[in-house]
Amino acid sequence: MTAFLKSREAILLGAIAVLLALIASRFPAFVEPSNLARVFTDTSPLIILALGQTVVILTRCIDLSVAANLALTGMVCAMLNAAMPGVPVAAILLLAVAMGAVMGAINGVMVWKLSIPPIVVTLGTMTIYRGLIFVISDGAWVNAHEMSPAFTGFPRFDILGLPMLAWIAILVAALFFVMIARTPLGRAFYAVGGNPGAAVYTGIDVGRTQFMAFVISGALAGLTGYLWVARYSVAYVDIAGGFELEVVAACVIGGISIAGGAGTILGTILGALFLGIVKNALPVVNISPFWQMAISGTAIIVAVAFNARSSRSKGRIILKSAEGHA
């Protein structure tokens, strides 16, 4: 318990509590349950993508193509719905996840089989996926009136006061807790990122594990793609532009080490919530939404400085006299 209180998650939780308290002192309506639920729902896409990004970063990689993947999948889903309104939502969900996973697998295979640095691969696929949206849509928008009610209704479907979008984020988070803590693959993400050389000796295939991380990240980006266009009832080339940076920011703020192998699922969720609360609070406290970008930039820098401080490597303790208080 004391370990938890000193942990980065506890500090982040404290920061979120202070932030909420500050906002509540002037604008109590912000912390009303219904509004918090709205904030959570609004942050759900960020949470889902950040969880996928987390496993990628754990394995010493980075996936900058998630937002483009999201947008391309979203466009395909929207166009499919516009063309064939009869296709059930379940099929569209399946298509979104599968399509996202394939795009993730393309990233993963280039990292695994060709050993191309992940930042180069995903920088490239990011522009390619984004460009493909234009190619398939010819730059046209898919608007609300072209989508079926079932298509747009799914993420907003209310269960126990929370929309489906929020429940999906909760479900994904729950699956991640189980996967990370209780499956060999989950532990392999840490092993591969923490000490890739040693992972080989334990029978873990480093490249394959990284590939799996990209597939997971891609599948979640695809899933979010459908949810995104359905929720906002619009699809166009530039949706979620630059969102990949917000996703990486949520991970970094949540304490996921960019060097791999360190960080927790809870941390990522808290990091995403922190960004989500800031974003939703700005209009409430009468600060221009144009401040949001600078605030998240500052948060990233503060978080990474904080990460580095807590993980600075110490030299060997050789002196007996120094052992107690080092």
Binding site: A249, I258, F290, G297, A308
Partner: peptide
Amino acid sequence: LVTGLGLPSIVVTIGTMSLFRGISYIVLG
């Protein structure tokens, strides 16, 4: 930030990327 505090440049500059342009947005909207 990178050489003085020893932070990884890829994350630092993702942060300043938001920060620098963010200031432009604050000024110009």
